[in-house]
Simulated scan of single mutants.
Amino acid sequence: MAGVEFRHADAIWRDHPALVPAVLSLGGVTPDAGVAAAVAAFTDVARARLADGPESGFPEIQAWRRAFTAQGLKPTQYRCASESLLRRLRREGDLPALHPLVDLCNAVSAAFAVPVAALDLDRIDGDLAVRYADGTEEYETFGGELEHPDPREVVFADAADRAHARRWTNRQSGRSAIRPSTTRVLVVAEALHASAAADVPKLLDALAGAIADAWHVVPRTAILRREEPAFRVRGASPAPGRSGGPS
């Protein structure tokens, strides 16, 4: 699926001017990469932050709670993905092992307290936009049930009007979830807090470095801005002296 473009709609930038999104694409993903050491290191960073106080007090989380409240959502009922991960880590002491790439993204998300979504590019139809829903979009849960987002809800919507995330950073879709057969991936991290402009590039560098070590590819990355909101997926170059797949 060549030439997929990802962007945030102008209305999202207008209503959330503090938004700092990072995007990353890669190919050559396999379900057997060794990420345990990296996952452990990032998870330890998250544990250290939690030792100083619960995730609800983190500025990264508070910013998303304000955004959810502005959308008419109760922030303790609908939590951004990074808050849910940190809450689980605080309560259970660890994060679940699902797939090497998902595990790595979850650990980085917890370490930086920033939502990170990983989507199977081959399960997305056409371009993908973060935009307000009109209510006709179709969302597939992890259990296979179909839902329609509420009008004005923020979704990740493709050209076929399939919603690949509901309530912005609250819940991804089972349709484009990473699975053992996944080879091409789009990763999106989004932050709204005051120091996001400094923190998100650090997150992106950390994640890209860990991915390069695990899958021996150099992912394509970008920080998006309202003036340059689009990221187009194309082939990624393999790391020097290593082999990798397209993205």
Score class of each variant (00 low, 15 high):
residue 104 L to I: 10
residue 105 C to V: 00
residue 106 N to S: 14
residue 107 A to Q: 14
residue 107 A to I: 06
residue 107 A to L: 01
residue 108 V to C: 03
residue 108 V to L: 05
residue 109 S to Y: 15
residue 109 S to D: 06
residue 109 S to E: 08
residue 109 S to N: 11
residue 110 A to F: 06
residue 110 A to T: 09
residue 110 A to P: 14
residue 112 F to L: 00
residue 113 A to H: 01
residue 113 A to Q: 10
residue 114 V to N: 05
residue 114 V to P: 00
residue 115 P to M: 13
residue 115 P to L: 06
residue 116 V to P: 10
residue 116 V to D: 06
residue 117 A to L: 14
residue 117 A to P: 00
residue 117 A to E: 13
residue 118 A to H: 13
residue 118 A to D: 04
residue 118 A to W: 05
residue 119 L to N: 07
residue 119 L to G: 01
residue 120 D to R: 02
residue 121 L to T: 05
residue 121 L to R: 01
residue 123 R to V: 01
residue 123 R to Y: 03
residue 124 I to D: 11
residue 124 I to P: 13
residue 124 I to Y: 09
residue 125 D to N: 03
residue 126 G to P: 08
residue 126 G to R: 07
residue 128 L to N: 13
residue 128 L to F: 15
residue 130 V to D: 05
residue 130 V to C: 11
residue 131 R to F: 11
residue 132 Y to N: 12
residue 132 Y to Q: 07
residue 133 A to F: 06
residue 133 A to I: 03
residue 133 A to L: 08
residue 134 D to Y: 08
residue 135 G to T: 10
residue 135 G to H: 01
residue 135 G to I: 08
residue 135 G to C: 15
residue 135 G to W: 05
residue 136 T to A: 11
residue 138 E to P: 08
residue 138 E to G: 13
residue 139 Y to I: 11
residue 139 Y to G: 05
residue 139 Y to C: 13
residue 140 E to Y: 14
residue 140 E to N: 04
residue 141 T to F: 01
residue 142 F to W: 08
residue 143 G to E: 11
residue 143 G to F: 04
residue 143 G to Y: 03
residue 143 G to I: 03
residue 144 G to R: 09
residue 144 G to S: 07
residue 144 G to P: 03
residue 145 E to I: 00
residue 145 E to P: 00
residue 146 L to N: 10
residue 147 E to P: 01
residue 148 H to M: 15
residue 149 P to R: 09
residue 149 P to G: 11
residue 150 D to P: 03
residue 150 D to E: 14
residue 151 P to N: 05
residue 153 E to W: 06
residue 153 E to K: 07
residue 154 V to P: 01
residue 154 V to D: 05
residue 155 V to R: 01
residue 156 F to D: 07
residue 156 F to T: 00
residue 157 A to W: 14
residue 158 D to E: 05
residue 158 D to H: 06
residue 158 D to L: 02
residue 158 D to P: 09
